[in-house]
């Protein structure tokens, strides 16, 4: 589902953020990308959803080589990918419903279908009762679950989560990981970037360790 072949990325006048990275993540796999801050975890995710372009090597996502993907084709790629961030990136002026609906509006869904689907996904993450609230009225954990609902609502083939539990307490962390695990079980490929190796649970079979932009460990965990 995700393949990186000798991928490098160097910012100008700086040490490379990624250096000759080769890895492959299969369809439906749950992979944890870990490493200290600045190891290149976020850069790796950004390459997958084409927010950054590699300066060397090839990136293939869902059978499509996106290395030289025209800008006009990026939206098509991103509709297959749900992205979750540490800072949630919710729109504070919009309700939970509107925040989650955004993903479906982009696809051109009608209002009736959107409302039904959003309610359904919010129920899955346990927030259907907050549908009319605005994000500022929610706790950090709840906000992250809304962000996850937004990423999951169109059943994406790939879910990328960049430090999804970074700002959360233990109970919220558990819930967020549970949602990601369920998405993986339903068939989505899940890639979680985190500096916290303790997130590695028994359901996570793959760990990729980055150090100074290079893969130092790429193991299937039994």
């Amino acid at each position: 589902m995700i393949e990186l072949h000798n991928v490098s990325l160097a910012y100008q006048h700086d040490t490379p953020a990624l250096n000759n990275v080769t890895l492959s993540i299969a369809k439906g796999e749950f992979a944890l990308v870990t490493g200290v801050s600045g190891a290149g975890k976020s850069t790796l995710l950004k390459l997958i959803y084409a927010a950054l372009r590699p300066t060397g090597g090839q990136v293939v996502v869902d059978g499509l080589n996106i290395t030289g993907l025209p800008v006009s084709q990026i939206p098509r790629l991103r509709r297959k990918i749900g992205v979750v961030f540490q800072d949630f990136k919710l729109l504070p002026a919009r309700t939970v419903l509107d925040n989650v609906a955004l993903t479906l509006e982009v696809l051109g869904w009608g209002k009736h279908d959107i409302n039904r689907k959003v309610y359904h996904i919010l129920k899955q993450v346990g927030l259907e009762h907050k549908i009319k609230s605005t994000p500022l009225r929610l706790s950090g954990g709840e906000q992250q679950r809304v962000a996850m609902a937004r990423a999951l609502v169109n059943d994406p083939r790939i879910i990328l989560a960049d430090e999804p539990t970074g700002n959360l307490d233990e109970a919220s962390k558990e819930k967020v990981l549970e949602i990601l695990k369920e998405a993986s079980i339903r068939g989505s490929t899940v890639v979680v970037a985190t500096h916290d190796r303790r997130l590695m649970g028994d359901w996570c079979k793959r760990m990729i360790v980055l150090e100074k932009g290079a893969v130092v460990e790429n193991a299937n965990v039994a």
Partner: peptide, 16 residues
């Protein structure tokens, strides 16, 4: 600008 960035992330086209 956060809204613009987010719309790009969820797959909105430039026109949208």
């Amino acid at each position: 600008k956060d809204e613009l960035e987010l719309m790009g992330l969820v797959g909105a086209t430039r026109l949208f």
